[in-house]
Design a protein around this nucleic acid. Structure first.
Length: 578
RNA sequence: GCCAGCGUAGCUCAGUGGUAGAGCAGCGGUUUCGUAAACCGCCGGUCGUGAGUUCGACUCUCACCGCUGGCUCCA
């Protein structure tokens, strides 16, 4: 398996060189950046005399096919730096790379008319590059640095066989179909408005209903686990954010203050401050800890225009936030509980696979190295005791403490930012958040910020794409649509609906004077789990005819039979389609 | 924010330097029907916004707004 991956990577990397050769041929004077293999394919960055247009991809691709057909060998060579500097004299980016290399000699690879500074390895010959396709053009900063010039990047994908390439392209098509922006419109779940401002979500009745179902479930599970659910204001005086350090560290992401009675107020970008103020309304004993304040708190953050994306990246969103105030000796147990809760939530929502990341101390940090190490160790212990696989993400912690991030894997294997658990040493110190210990002295609490869904908006996006809009019954905004065949069946349909409503089943009657076929089609497009067709036959026998959104026609059954079937599916939050 | 592309009716999309078209949706009728679209008619757009070029701009130019794909960012 690993050997196969290594071979693929070699081939993809070689494909990027072939692409560079094609570009060199088609755009004399092109300057070359870097061209690595990436997941599924490769890219190469160029500085070109003119901007690329989509049609260029076709031209470049056919030139690449020529190079591949020519069966050109890849040849490695070691040369000394001086020689290399001369060889790449016209290539400023390559010169920069050479200057950064530590050794006296550098390796280069040649194929055909193209030579590149490259560590390798490569395939033996261009003919070993199999199924590939150029996919897109993008701008990319040299060295990934905003201050550096922007180069033009061409992305491609490459696989061993045409079948695998087809498969990949089919996955892309499937992803397009599941796009939450498209489904959100089709299923009438939410909208965004240019007039209202970008990144500001309007939840339509059905989307709002789903959100309420999720939130109700969330509240219930949090109460069970000893969380206190609270509310805090959306605005507060800017002074608090100066104390917290956000005004210095985080100001770029906060909206400008507004003036109220000559005092500056800001919209909250986080919920923690309010929770701290509440904590501090009393003198806390070590016996009272841990204290867990949870809030579905709506926050507003400035996100740069280019990063906004449907519900997944917005400017106003509701975090399923909580702050745990505990003693240092409780940290491990608390984090364990949070990880368990997160796993329970993820499983309930049908995510069985996830990746865990432990992020450690970044360059800019608050607190001492000692507390960082203790807390990082506590997080590590939690993951190890729970026997979870995780990776360390060095230096990726937040300035105020280390964190555990959970990335959810959706039905297409794509990763989504899910739960996050962050230890905080900064705020307890800045706000003097203390408790009285057994020794009668004041001690600083340890604070844990955590979300288990992330934000309602992003989680909704994730759910939509994971389920492709075919939500499990317990989450479906409409669970049952009753379809009277003719108008004379309306009364009976309403009666059936009434019975189901009594049992808290979300039901609608399609009472339009339309044909049954149309009603079925529309219920189908809405992905309603159950369609109950009622006509003369059903009315006479007090039955319903059940059709599933899978298209399956289960024939007639009594209403109680239907209830017996549906109730446990809802109550147990069954994942299966039906 | 940066690079590139895009913006035509509620939605999906066609169109061209000579003042806009389809399907669906909506509305009005007719139809009362057995498991994914009945039929007829009507309504609907200052072609994202603003400026410029032109006898004339939806079409060309520029600016702005928004969206899409990337890059950077995501405490």
């Amino acid at each position: 398996m690993e050997a196969k991956e290594a071979k693929l990577e070699k081939m993809r990397h070689s494909a990027s060189h072939v692409m560079a050769e094609a570009v060199q041929y088609l755009f004399p004077g092109a300057k070359f950046g870097i061209g690595p293999a990436i997941e599924d394919g490769f890219y190469y960055d160029f500085e070109l005399p003119r901007p690329l247009v989509p049609d260029d991809l076709i031209t470049i691709e056919s030139k690449m096919r020529e190079i591949i057909a020519a069966d050109l060998p890849f040849a490695a060579e070691e040369i000394d730096r001086t020689k290399a500097r001369k060889l790449f004299g016209e290539q400023p980016y390559k010169l920069e790379l050479i200057d950064d290399l530590p050794d006296e000699t550098v390796s280069i690879y040649r194929q055909g008319s193209f030579v590149d500074l490259c560590r390798g390895p490569h395939v033996n010959s261009t003919s070993e590059i199999k199924a590939f396709k150029l996919t897109s053009i993008a701008g990319a900063y040299w060295r990934g640095d905003e201050k550096c010039p922007m180069l033009q990047r061409i992305y491609g994908v490459a696989f061993d066989t045409e079948a695998e390439l087809e498969d990949y392209l089919a996955r892309l098509t499937e992803a397009t179909k599941r796009d939450h922006r498209k489904l959100g419109k089709e299923l009438d779940l939410f909208s965004l408005h240019e007039e209202a401002g970008p990144g500001l979500v309007h939840w339509h009745p059905k989307g709002a209903l789903m959100r309420q179902i999720i939130e109700d479930f969330w509240r219930q599970e949090h109460r069970k686990r000893g969380y206190d659910i609270v509310f805090t204001p959306h605005i507060s005086k800017v002074g608090l954010w100066k104390i917290s350090g956000h005004w210095d560290f985080y100001r770029d992401s906060m909206y400008s203050p507004m003036d109220i009675d000559d005092v500056e107020y800001v919209i909250k970008p986080m919920n923690c401050i309010g929770h701290i103020l509440m904590y501090k309304t009393q003198l806390r004993s070590y016996r009272n800890l841990p204290l867990r304040y949870a809030e579905l708190g709506t926050v507003y953050r400035y996100e740069r225009s280019g990063v906004l994306h449907g519900l997944a990246r917005v400017r106003g969103f509701t975090q399923d936030d909580a702050h745990i105030f505990c003693r240092p000796d409780q940290l491990e147990a608390e984090v364990t509980e949070v990880v368990q809760l997160a796993r329970f939530m993820m499983n309930t929502f049908g995510f069985s696979e996830y990746e865990l990341l432990l992020s450690t101390r970044p360059e800019k940090y608050a607190g001492t190295i000692q507390v960082w190490e203790d807390a990082t160790e506590a997080l590590r212990k939690v993951l190890e005791h729970l026997e979870l696989n995780y990776e360390v993400d060095p230096g990726e912690g937040v300035f105020y403490g280390p964190k555990i991030d959970v990335k959810l894997k959706d039905a297409l294997g794509r990763l989504w930012q899910g739960p996050t658990i962050q230890v905080d040493f900064n705020l307890p110190q800045r706000f003097d958040v203390n408790y009285i210990g057994e020794d009668g002295l004041e001690h600083q609490v340890v604070m844990v910020h955590r979300t288990v869904l992330g934000s309602m908006e992003r989680f909704m996006a994730c759910l939509i794409e994971h389920y492709a809009g075919v939500f499990p019954v317990w989450l479906s905004p409409i669970q049952v649509t009753i379809i009277p065949i003719a108008d004379r069946h309306l009364d009976y349909a309403n009666k059936v609906a009434g019975g189901l409503r009594e049992c808290d089943i979300r039901v609608q009657v399609d009472d339009r004077s339309e044909r049954m076929n149309l009603k079925i089609r529309e219920a189908q497009l809405e992905k309603t789990p159950y369609m109950l067709v009622v006509g003369d036959k059903e009315m006479d026998t007090s039955q319903v005819s059940l059709r599933l959104r899978s298209g399956e026609d289960l024939g007639t059954l009594s209403i109680s039979q239907f209830m017996d079937r549906v109730k446990p599916i809802i109550a147990n939050k069954i994942q299966d389609k039906l």
